[in-house]
Design a binder for these strands. Structure first.
Lengths: 334, 334
DNA sequence: TTGGATGAGTTTTACGTATAACGTCCGACG
DNA sequence: CGTCGGACGTTATACGTAAAACTCATCCAA
């Protein structure tokens, strides 16, 4: 358990002062230190395996190079991918990303900052983690919101997906195949990203003669979705010929429901998802779904936070999404 | 952007010295400070919204209350769950967990510590992330290994699943159904946890008359698994009647392969998975699989690290796993 | 010859916390 | 009456770093 060498140890080894070490290693020695001395310092640092003490640096600078990412659940592949993207960009800039332990994880957690064991420079939050937002707002930390209502004020920056366009693409695809009777398997979570889906669907169907849609909400699990979809497929009135799902997990439940009812996908009922998770190609038939650039969301989120921290203007504009047509959609049975 | 209050601000507000604040808030004031004064301090701290500066604390104490979790990929649900468990236990003890940005994430990353933006008190590492281990070993930080070879030396503690027993359970289940010709859809990743599966399978089949097994390796993606399974099901010799898969993702690929070849699961071929991911119940039929307590692995890992840090003996013994029989296995066609 | 200007460092200080070492006051005991 | 030991605090210091302020030559122009 030999203790880590400090900048003073390096200084001693190189025969200079601690300040010089700091200057050289901090890359701020343009005209202050000679090339030769700088070389000596770097040599000594490598020799000793010097690694700056980050606690000391943070204390001195008042910044921690750490961002908090608030997501509802990492076990949701989408958010795992968001994290991956954010962490990549962060690492490139010497930043770290810590996660807010989601409600499913730890108990009380009213205060994200109590649980964040690190001091923070900024926060990136998904609008799906609404419960944590109030306390974040109070902290006047730079805040980047992911996929959130552009109408709300507060965040320093916003990274949004063009969700409405995704729904438009799905709907056009299904309308093109000849579908008119839809069910909308909606997430029960009341968050902007899902509200938009509902509104966009209504808009896309408005003006299409004979088009109708039955909305069924469900929790974000396969089983809850299956039950909801069974209700939608067995309710009163003519059976919907296409199920538009807010999420691939819901779509998986929808497929299960269809099978259980003896309906074939896509022959008897078409199913469309949202997200393009790994799940989408694991199912048989593979899901027609809207592909979301999850890593890009994380990357843009972290980049926006860095922009805000350094006084730059964050990049604006929604991220595009694209429909991927696979085997779960087909013309309706005639 | 008002700056955070410091312990000195609290002291001023309470009319005491900074040291007293530190004593009271640090809960080490048994006979040193009067009940009344302690109350005043706590009041003032609440009033000002005082929050200790963690950088300063870390610098002073030389410990950071931060652990590094090294996993191959968070997008793998198993590891996302391991993280969740570890983070929960960590939070209960005022610790944080940072993740090693996996190779798929960031580029160079030879050195986990260069990318860890926080100073660390210890490391929890999955044996599946073998590439990162060398540099960790060099750092003489307390190391807890997850699901790793008990023969190897190095780690301060080890948290293992009883993988061999899981394979035994699957195999017994399938033998009981009457299967004799198996294919083993194995992970191409060369890590202890997968090696054990192979060995345990051989052991379980040794001595069973007529039992044979064909091993086919595949990368951990649905598509790679599908291709491998197609080879296994169409190769020379009699077709295997049961596929034992190292992972549910591989099992999903196996199911797809069967469908493509016009084989029904489980009527024509049985498929068994490993992990019990959400995927397992999303598929149709639902997967028979070995349920692994992923969160428990994370919890035990973090608990073991805390034990090591505080000089206690970490809890020993493998975590039990259990077979979940669902619809993807049945007696072989006769 | 004086007086900048420049190059090459060094000395010093502050960041906020935890804690060891040091004061006081007061009641009680010998 | 002295002094001894709690009870209740305070003062002082160290952790390792970054950077502002300072020193000290040397060189060049006026």
């Amino acid at each position: 358990m030999k203790t880590q060498p400090t900048s003073r140890d390096v200084a001693r080894a190189a025969g200079v002062s601690q300040a010089t070490v700091s200057l050289v290693l901090g890359d701020k020695w343009r005209g202050r230190v000679s090339e030769r001395t700088a070389g000596l310092v770097r040599e000594a640092a490598r020799e000793l395996g010097y690694r700056p003490n980050l606690a000391a640096r943070s204390l001195r600078l008042g910044r921690t190079r750490t961002a908090l990412l608030v997501v509802p659940a990492l076990t949701n592949e989408f958010f795992a991918r968001v994290y991956t993207g954010a962490a990549r960009v962060a690492a490139e800039h010497g930043f770290g990303v810590v996660l807010y332990p989601s409600p499913e994880g730890v108990g009380p957690a009213r205060d994200p900052f109590a649980s964040a064991s690190a001091a923070l420079d900024g926060v990136i939050a998904s609008s799906m983690a609404a419960d944590a937002l109030a306390s974040i707002r109070g902290s006047d930390l730079p805040l980047v919101m992911l996929d959130s209502d552009p109408g709300e004020s507060g965040p320093a920056a916003r990274v949004n997906l063009d969700i409405a366009d995704g729904i438009r693409q799905v709907t056009d695809h299904l309308l093109g195949l000849g579908h008119r009777r839809f069910a909308h398997l909606a997430s029960a979570v009341d968050s902007w990203t899902f509200q938009v889906r509902g509104r966009a669907l209504d808009e896309a169907l408005a003006g299409v003669p004979g088009a109708e849609v039955l909305t069924v909400p469900a929790a974000l699990t396969v089983d809850a979705a299956r039950q909801a979809a069974e209700r939608a497929l067995t309710g009163a009135g003519p059976r919907p010929t296409a199920l538009i799902c807010d999420d691939d997990i819901l779509a998986a439940g929808a497929c299960k429901a269809a099978r259980r009812l003896g309906l074939r996908v896509p022959d008897d009922v078409s199913v469309a998802g949202f997200d393009d998770l790994a799940l989408a190609t694991a199912l048989e038939p593979e899901l027609t779904t809207v592909q979301l650039p999850a890593e890009r969301v994380g990357e843009r989120g972290m980049a926006a936070l860095l922009d805000v921290l350094e006084g730059r203007e964050p990049e604006a504009g929604d991220l595009p999404v694209s429909l991927v047509v696979r085997g779960s959609t087909a013309p309706p049975a005639r």
